[in-house]
Design a protein around this nucleic acid. Structure first.
Lengths: 210, 210
DNA sequence: ATGCCTTTGTGACATTTGTCAGCTGCAAGT
DNA sequence: ACTTGCAGCTGACAAATGTCACAAAGGCAT
């Protein structure tokens, strides 16, 4: 079945957004193996992807999160606020709870990890295209446990600590006394069950709390 | 042309190593589009990949760098020291100078970035299979700046320190005394001009010295 | 055997880090 | 006005970290 432009309208029309060209091409090849799916356009950054989605109004936008100019999460948010008919599927390396939460808030239809078996991709896309949801099972479970327990100050201080700054340096950077910085760090370490500032920073980063 | 097992021997036989299953499947699909290339096995970590290369002796090993159990660089080194006939092509996200240098030292035939256009992959593989080299042009230029000043021990110790392990924990992990660990750390901090272990780890990581 | 590396270990020391209890001032709420 | 809570600060202390000088053991070349 084809429309007047020669596009097979019985296929699901997909726009693909991923910054690493090689991976983008490979994903396109993978989807190309499915007879009912068609990648109609590709983008290497978020802004280009948004333009394509607006002009082409595809059935599905398949997007990475970490991209230049606009992240996949911001992109999904835009698609929602612009009331575009396209449904969004996110594919990312990072199973961070915070990412998933933001994705759900942006109304995405699917959230897959790049660790997932490749057979799963096509079926997830089909499910989402037909109005369903496809959340990586590992995340659907694990994701909803922790709410971010950190205060703004703790987050701020942890970020610098993770870079290797000393308490005194951090104090200078954010205009607090060194003692206060140590207190915040101690608080954060306690809340996260870490052994020291570095582990605490790593744990927070992994959870997507930054 | 087929051998007695039904394998088309006129095709280049490729083993694919990449930890993210979705990307691995996608790369396999991409290579599957080429009539003269055949992915005969896939692995999700370095150790499994080495076993496959030893038993199957493929023409090409296409591998990522950052993988569990054994990195792609260690893998390439093993292939070289075991005098296996397989030629190695590395595909990675990271254009770090140190990575490229170590890859060259391990005698790899190709080093591509995941940013490279996907059309380039197949031709790079063919070039390497026929005895040539395929180094990402951006890297071939830029790559040759700083030399890695770290010893193996220093590298090893820095890795754990960057994860937030204490000196005592690291000592236990690699069977040294705590004092020795502190000495190595101190050495590394000095060599890198860092203020502490965390900054040292970050600097080394950014340079690709890990 | 003699030196000369390198690797690993020790002991001592100053500094930084992590913890805790308690103080201050300020902005609500009641 | 009185309490409550929060953000920030201080001081004190034990533990971990960073630095240094030096010692023991092994490999290797001459």
């Amino acid at each position: 079945m084809r429309d007047q432009l020669g596009v097979d309208v019985s296929k699901l029309r997909i726009v693909l957004a991923e910054d690493q060209a090689l991976v983008r091409g490979a994903l396109a090849a993978l989807l190309g193996l499915e007879p009912d799916l068609a990648v109609i356009a590709e983008a290497g950054d978020g802004r280009a992807a948004l333009a394509l989605v607006e002009s082409l109004q595809p059935d599905i936008l398949l997007t990475d999160i970490e991209m230049p100019l606009m992240t996949g999460l911001e992109l999904a948010q835009q698609v929602k606020t612009l009331r575009l008919p396209t449904r969004v599927v996110i594919v990312t390396t990072f199973g961070r709870a915070g990412y998933l939460r933001r994705a759900m808030a942006a109304g995405v239809g699917g959230y897959l990890l790049k660790d997932a078996p490749s057979e799963q991709l096509a079926s997830a896309i089909r499910r989402v295209a037909s109005g369903g949801r496809a959340i990586d099972p590992e995340l659907a479970m694990a994701g909803w446990d922790g709410d971010d327990p950190l205060t703004d100050r703790e987050r701020q201080v942890l970020r610098w600590a993770g870079e290797g700054k000393s308490s005194a340096e951090i104090a200078g950077l954010i205009h607090l006394s060194e003692g206060t910085v140590r207190n915040y760090l101690s608080e954060a370490i306690g809340k996260l069950g870490a052994a020291n500032r570095v582990e605490a920073a790593r744990l927070a980063r992994d959870k997507g709390w930054l």
